[in-house]
Nucleic acid binder design. Structure first.
Length: 513
RNA sequence: GGGCCUGUAGCUCAGCUAGGUAGAGCAUCUGACUUUUAAUCAGGUGGUCGGGGGUUCGAAUCCCCUCAGGCCCGCCA
């Protein structure tokens, strides 16, 4: 059984109306791994829905988190903003409301493109609405117990003056320590390092809980029943462990069913970090992997399995595998060990699968065709020469368009050199030997009367090479050199059939004379 | 030091919760087809299931130990 179905079944045994929570702290550039959390949550959502559960997925944006340090990609002046909540720091590019919006927007676009069905919630608004106030109150009143729990779980020493709540200093805009003795619901005083002092109202956005308290507080607020999170939180003594005890012993709530997931690595390069940026960003992955394929990539393996995101040929392999699972889904006949992958295909569609199998253009073929035309219409025209595209629905055209865009992006960024070619890179006549010219002349005449489909073309290519007295290999190389300036390329018969006959003949003749 | 996760074919992974003759895809090899060239189809090769021990009639699967890799035990999220 697919892992998402196992989780869904376990959840529904306890809770018929489960709520799944997930989220992000958009303090820096978002990487591929951040997508895994959202996709994992969405998979559980659609699996529960599939079993008839009334399920909701919320996506929490931790917009009140402080900027921890000035990351290398930030301008110098951001040094001044360290310690301030990211929803109150200016946008680096000036186009968004604030820092948090700037970094989370591409991610929200990605969620949309991946069709993650969730409700977006901004944490700073929860604070402003006073949603955290009961938990802040409990945390402050039961502070000794909180400290005891944290000590026991983490095995660390914690000072007795530890505060679970940090007021936001009105003078400098940064989080600071409160004067614990002054607490009287709903107010607590503070005296900031900057020299400023004042009073924070815990029912307003005047401060925030520290992470280890904030997380369980959210569980209590929403009644979260399932939550995927990075395995760093899942480790013994980590924030899930402490959160579990705090939500039960302090907030009188329950911890969600944990779905820890492993991190995503760029193949051969290593762990990616939000804070330092990385060679493949989340947006890169979105841009070069069709959304349904990206969903599938994360769903085909168990969450606790590390994923190497291969931005090279792996992108093509994954798309091909996706298409293969699509065929197996509709045609049946999968083996036991493909069962989970086929199910992953269906979950990657959010369990809303088309009535019948959509027409498939092999992804590797698309890689060739995309390089033969500048625009989508051109690609469609070329595909139309060998495939029947007349019956495509609007949605199918959209999917194809998206795939073409992804292939283009991939070719421009991460594709290895040996899959790239350009039909404008043909060589000049002087670079060809006499026998090669003779071959081209013979072939041109033969092709003139040849049916313009792959097999007859291939036959002519080989036959005329023999006639011209050169090896088949040499013949192929000559044609590739003339067409794309390389000695190898896409399967020739189909490649030529994809092109316009007149243009091919013109090209051959222009160099054979 | 303590804990969690991972280790199955060259590569990516199923299979482990209910032990019963090791599975897929990709890669590779061979062959359809008078075509060696990155879109076809059919077959084949390929694994002491990280290692050792135990339980069992029988272990990839359960238990113990061990090795390797990753991660955690922050008043960071």
């Amino acid at each position: 059984m697919h892992w998402a179905d196992v989780i869904a079944r376990d959840i529904l045994e306890k809770d018929k109306n489960p709520l799944i929570a997930t989220g992000i702290s958009p303090t820096g550039i978002i990487h591929v791994g951040s997508l895994r959390e959202a996709i994992t949550g969405e998979a559980v959502r659609s699996a529960i829905k599939d079993l008839g559960g009334n399920v909701r997925l919320i996506y929490l944006i931790d917009s009140l988190d402080p900027l921890r340090k000035r990351y290398p990609f930030l301008p110098e002046e951001y040094e001044n903003y360290v310690g301030m909540p990211i929803c109150q720091i200016p946008c680096p590019c000036g186009k968004h409301d604030n820092y948090a919006h700037h970094f989370v927007q591409p991610f929200l676009d990605a969620l949309k493109s991946l069709k993650v069905d969730c409700e977006i919630i901004w944490t700073h608004e929860l604070y402003a609405q006073g949603k955290f106030a009961p938990m802040i109150d409990l945390a402050l009143r039961k502070r000794p117990q909180v400290i005891k729990i944290l000590k026991e779980v983490t095995g660390r020493d914690l000072n007795d003056d530890f505060s679970p709540y940090n007021p936001l200093c009105r003078s400098c805009g940064r989080f600071t320590q409160p004067l614990l003795d002054t607490y009287e619901y709903p107010r607590i005083d503070y005296c900031c390092k900057c020299g400023g002092s004042g009073t924070a109202d815990i029912t307003k956005m005047d401060g925030k809980l520290v992470w280890r308290l904030e997380w369980p507080a959210k569980w209590k607020i929403f009644g979260t029943s399932v939550e995927p999170f990075g395995k760093d939180h899942a480790a013994a003594g980590g924030s899930y462990d402490s959160g579990k005890r705090i939500v039960e012993e302090i907030f009188d709530g329950k911890a969600p069913y944990p779905v820890p997931y492993e991190f995503v690595q760029l193949k051969g390069v290593g762990q990616m970090h939000k804070s330092t940026g990385s060679p493949v960003t989340g947006m890169d992955a979105i841009n070069m992997t069709p959304p349904e394929v990206l969903n599938y990539l994360f769903l085909r393996v168990n969450p606790q399995k590390a994923i190497d995101y291969d931005s090279g040929m792996g992108v093509l392999d994954m798309a091909d595998e996706y298409d293969r699972m699509e065929r197996l889904f509709f045609e049946g006949g999968c083996t036991d060990c493909e069962e989970n992958s086929v199910r992953a295909y269906s979950i990657a569609q959010h369990n809303v699968v088309p009535e019948e199998i959509p027409p498939q253009i092999p992804y590797r073929h698309l890689v060739n065709v995309v390089q033969m035309s500048d625009c989508f219409e051109g690609v469609m025209e070329i595909l139309g020469r060998t495939e029947n595209l007349k019956d495509l629905s609007g949605e199918e055209v959209q999917r194809l368009r998206k795939r073409v865009e992804c292939v283009k992006f991939w070719l421009d960024t991460f594709a290895p050199e040996d899959v790239k070619f350009s039909v404008s890179d043909g060589i000049r006549p002087e670079e060809l030997s006499e026998e090669e010219k003779k071959y081209l002349a013979l072939l041109s005449d033969a092709l003139d009367t040849t049916e313009w489909t792959p097999d007859p073309i291939s036959n002519a290519v080989v036959e005329k090479a023999k006639e011209a007295g050169i090896s088949t290999k040499k013949g192929f190389q000559t044609l590739y050199r003339v067409l794309i300036g390389r000695t190898s390329g896409p399967r020739l018969g189909a490649f030529l059939a994809d092109m316009e006959k007149a243009k091919v003949l013109e090209r051959f003749r222009s160099v054979s004379l």
